[in-house]
Amino acid sequence: MPILTVNKLTKSFGGLTAVSNVSMELNHGELVGLIGPNGAGKTTVFNMLTGIYTPSSGNITLSIDGRDIRLNGKKPYKICKAGVARTFQNIRLFKDLTVLDNVRISMHKNIKYGLLHGMFHSRLHSDEEKRLLDKSIELLSILKLDHKKDELAKNLPYGEQRHLEIVRALATEPSLLLLDEPAAGMNPAETAKLTEVIGWIRKHFNLTILLIEHDMSVVMKICERIYVLDYGIVIAEGSPDEIKSNQRVIKAYLGEDMRNA
């Protein structure tokens, strides 16, 4: 049962076609990788999936609880409310805010009190705030960030900033999580731990995950299926083993990396 159906998605900037006729399907609970050389259009696909770019043509459909929601052209916050969350390749935390606030902001879409309750700090407000606090700490503890909840996001070490991005995305209570190079800039030990965490959160939160990653050790280890993008088109799709032995993929991009993986 697909949760996300992407049909012939295309994006052109002026004369340049960054993504061309990309079709993919993500089944519920799957962990799918999206790989490809630099500039292949992976992040552009993410940006279309999350509404930051409007597709030039094609369709994106999200199916949750038997309901189909057409995502293309929707505003990012609506897509987030529909159940799609993401992290950013170049970390985009609210860096002058505390770790806790970063997480709480993501929970805003589900709060139960209105403006006036907020202005008069009503009972409902304090109850909800208590709930947000508890939930944030619970989420932060998954990646062992709970003891740093009052630090400013910008003061966290690089690796923890990437972790916080994931927690922040989880706080929106998504059904589909898009991770844009979560292991970028991490050392092998950190990467190994992150790989484990991604697997764990998928199970724990019953998530479907689409992952962009350059580190083949991560992709090959945890992804069940992989799409390979090159020059904006899907050149291969299959299990990690199939991808490893796909001649076109090796030729396009994987060459040396495969022998290391």
């Binding site: 930051i52 916050y77 993401r86 935390l93 609210f94 002058d96 902001i105 929106t172």
Partner: peptide
């Protein structure tokens, strides 16, 4: 906090479900 998130990073705020 939703307002403050706009000051901090509008694109990230929008992606986290803030209108």
């Amino acid at each position: 906090r939703a307002c403050i998130s706009i000051r901090e990073d509008e694109i990230a705020a929008e992606a986290m479900g803030i209108n």
